[in-house]
Design a protein around this nucleic acid. Sequence first.
DNA 1: CTGTCAATAT
DNA 2: CATATTGACA
Length: 292
Amino acid sequence: MREDDSTWFSKWEEELPSPEELMPLSQTLITHDLAVAFDIRNPNSPQQPPPPPLLPLQTPSSQPNSAEFDSAELGGGGGATGDEPARTLKRPRLVWTPQLHKRFVDAVAHLGIKNAVPKTIMQLMSVDGLTRENVASHLQKYRLYLKRMQGLSSGGGGAGGGLTGGGDPATDHLFASSPVPAHFLHPGRANSDNFLPFVPVAALQQHHHQMAAAAAGHQQLQTQYRQIGHFGSQPNGQFEHPFLSRQSQTVHHRIGAPVNNPVVPSSYVEDMESATAANGRKVLTLFPTGDD
DNA sequence: CTGTCAATAT
DNA sequence: CATATTGACA
């Protein structure tokens, strides 16, 4: 029944063959300008349909959504006419969506704990808009998560927890959604050959703004709740995402009966990047990469 | 300067 | 309250 349990990492091996395959990595985050443009915090309209966060493929159509420009910022004083570039502007808040986190894990996994440093990860991810600080922050969170899992799974203590191979959410929320490469659990242990040495390929840089994915717009919105629940209520009925259905709201009682293993809440698309390879590896590689 | 830990803000 | 952001330190 549960095949995912032991398949995920099996698949992983197939997935991380060569760096070249990883090269095409390219996700589009919100560009600064766009972010700022969307960052509009409508004082009057509290419920403005937030821009669809991530768009893997299948760009609907660029429906020029009337973007209202609300420069209700600036607290008096200061030249309001000056800032046009997105420099020195405060980013809203990075929304680490499962897919994005997956990319993060992917990069870290392929890099190896050794090279898994913020800068490298960030570069490998090639996520436009992502900054070192973002990755660094998330990285440490991820490390803590790994550490936590280590202590719980091994050990013997058995402490009331129980449940070892499952992994229980509630504390790790997002982290639990993405598969954790086994090797992460323990740095110097098990066989070393398991992994590919992997050499930091030349600086890969490629990012273009093809499908704009706007994910900004949440400034003070509590994350997780309706962050990206269902946005198929567009008047135009444009998007209809099959995935991205968080089933939170589930009352998880602390100790209760042995919860079943289905940890994975919904089914996130395994990997959209692999889809490209299946079809004919190419697509993203010929685009003018205006890197930084 | 880059990476990490701690504190703070939202 | 959890998460991301920011600051300070190594």
